[in-house]
Design a protein around this nucleic acid. Sequence first.
DNA 1: CTCTCTGTTATATTCATTATATAACAGATA
DNA 2: TATCTGTTATATAATGAATATAACAGAGAG
Lengths: 132, 132
Amino acid sequence: MWMEIDLQSDVPIYTQLVDQLIEGIASEQLKPGDPLPSVRSLAADLGINLHTVNKAYQILKQDGFLQVHRKQGVVVQPGGMPGADAAFRAKLAKGIRPLAAEAAVRGMTEAEFAEQSAAVYRQLMSKGENAK
Amino acid sequence: MWMEIDLQSDVPIYTQLVDQLIEGIASEQLKPGDPLPSVRSLAADLGINLHTVNKAYQILKQDGFLQVHRKQGVVVQPGGMPGADAAFRAKLAKGIRPLAAEAAVRGMTEAEFAEQSAAVYRQLMSKGENAK
DNA sequence: CTCTCTGTTATATTCATTATATAACAGATA
DNA sequence: TATCTGTTATATAATGAATATAACAGAGAG
């Protein structure tokens, strides 16, 4: 599998899974309808517990990024991804806020901060350049 | 005091303190040399423990945003704030990354994401428009 | 000098979260 | 029937966050 987990990180394993799966969808390495490994097999692959994987899947299902079929397993949402609604924009602003504040204190201008944001976005997208 | 703490939030109290103090410095509501309340008085004001405030101060001192003098108390760094070094840029990228990924999945373009970042930065700065 | 303030350090305890280990259930399929 | 799937239910260990006390050393005020 193409996923990697850092057990020493301060960010929870299930969060790492959620983030990497979203990145996979964003970069189109994972396309709508693509199957995902079962909670048991992925857990075995990564050397972690079944419930940790399941927690990640549950969050992504709740947010509308994944669909679950009995026996068919887990699949990347085939019917269109959820949009950038008000709830997400609020979450986004809340996440950016402390980063923007520290950037400002450290002397980064608004333009530099915006460009840095764009650069991260760009680099993320380029990961699936040649759609696997 | 102008600080507010959300005890129900999932973000730790000491992190809320760190973030708000950095925001205060960014918006110039807190200027270099300005005195901060003692760990005991601020803790009493907010109805929290002394150690929680101390932990926030320690982090900000470690990062170079605050200075500590015996008896004089805590003071906003008067000798120039730390710059946007490589370590911070890495931390910044790591923080932006999951936000950019989800924004992309939800249909936001690179330009929209950059503008959103700029908007948060801008709004943050405007908080100390009329420098207190 | 004594009292009182400051940050600092040291323990101990409670609580929630994270991650684990088992176990079992219900639906789908070979 | 046997085996895979997600799902649910407990229980447990480990960690981090927050609290409660207590004590120490430096720096002033009286």
